[in-house]
């Protein structure tokens, strides 16, 4: 390995740590979010260096892109509601004494240093599960090992992950029920035209990423995130306005992935097969089917998480409904 690359790794690692600290310390909330996005993208770059392109794609699209959009939306909301000069710390519950803050910092530092020493002082480089994965790949029905883990070997985990997303949207709808119409952030007419032009292309990319997931980096979550980005654009440009009548359909789309995934898991069982045990000859078909439906659910759910409030008809002031 060349020294130049090692130097690059060192600088990148330093930048990641420094920007993480800066994001927490910078005073302006908008700058905080910008720094966070930079941090996320640099982390994704580091993960590419560690030979994890699938994860880097997911972190960039979901962990950084969508999280950043959510943070911006919330900041917009807080600033639009009354507190025009909203400053970091303005909504603090009670001030933390300086001594306590330092104590916390020391504590966090000590814990991490202790962990570092404990880990470095013991043998690293055990063999993980790569051999077991490689041996089982021919039976998995897909060619990309990460997709095989996500949708076959550990399909149960992935089902539950889709359930976590579903739980999140239910919780968000529950929390913001009866809230007044949100001060929706919006983009101007220029963007609207731009969106009309680019959205079909973006949709194609999303579908491609999903399809490519069977062989190359990509898959349901990254594809879903791409499609969700389209959803965000449509919300922001006003091309789509959530309407109370759409709630039933939205609910159906939220649960589609969960239901298809769980039902398949149960239906393939029997005749000596366990739950989630796809017959090898149908594995590819089943996985692609599940992935497609899960992608739709993920895209719609992520878009709904960005929109927040359940689109209900507001009759007068419902802000205090019990």
């Amino acid at each position: 390995m060349s020294d130049a690359l090692l130097l690059f790794d060192l600088l990148l690692a330093l930048a990641v740590v420094a920007i993480a600290a800066a994001a927490l310390l910078v005073r302006d909330a908008f700058a905080m979010i910008v720094l966070f996005v930079v941090f996320g993208l640099l982390s994704a770059l580091a993960w590419v260096r560690l030979a994890a392109p699938d994860v880097a794609l997911a972190e960039a699209a979901i962990g950084t892109g969508l999280t950043g959009a959510l943070l911006l939306k919330t900041l917009h909301h807080l600033r639009a509601r009354g507190m025009a000069g909203w400053q970091p710390g303005a909504v603090a519950q009670r001030p933390v004494p300086r001594a306590v803050a330092w104590l916390n910092a020391g504590l966090a530092l000590a814990v991490m240093a202790g962990l570092g020493v404990a880990i470095l002082g013991s043998p690293l480089r055990v063999t993980g599960l790569e051999i077991a994965v490689a041996e089982a790949m021919p039976l998995s029905g897909v060619e990309n090992p990460v997709t095989a883990v996500l949708l076959n070997f550990r399909a149960y985990d992935t089902l539950m992950e889709v359930v976590v997303l579903l739980s999140a949207v239910i919780v968000v709808w529950q929390i913001e029920r009866g809230a007044g119409p949100a001060p929706a952030p919006s983009l101007g007419p220029v963007w609207q035209g731009f969106a009309r032009l680019t959205l079909p292309a973006a949709a194609l990319v999303g579908v491609y990423v999903l399809w490519a997931g069977a062989e190359a980096p990509g898959g349901a979550f990254q594809g879903g995130a791409m499609l969700a980005a389209i959803g965000l654009m449509m919300l922001l440009t006003g091309l789509y306005r959530p309407h109370p009548d759409h709630r039933g359909l939205a609910r159906l789309l939220f649960v589609l992935g969960t239901v298809a995934f769980a039902a398949t898991a149960l239906l393939v069982a029997g005749g000596g097969r366990a739950s989630f045990e796809y017959p090898p000859s149908y594995a590819k078909t089943l996985i692609l089917l599940i992935e497609a439906l899960v992608t739709i659910s993920i895209a719609v759910t992520l878009t709904a998480l960005f929109h927040g409030r359940e689109p209900v008809a507001l009759k007068g002031d419902l802000r205090h409904d019990p």
């Binding site: 994890a52 699938d54 994860v55 997911a58 972190e59 979901i62 962990g63 993980g128 599960l129 790569e130 994965v133 090992p145 990460v146 095989a148 883990v149 996500l150 550990r154 985990d157 992935t158 992950e161 976590v164 997303l165 898959g219 979550f221 993920i298």
Partner: peptide, 13 residues
């Protein structure tokens, strides 16, 4: 090793 990669993707979501 692809296993941890899958776990991190799950963790991100």
């Amino acid at each position: 090793d692809p296993m941890p990669h899958a776990l991190v993707i799950t963790g991100i979501v």
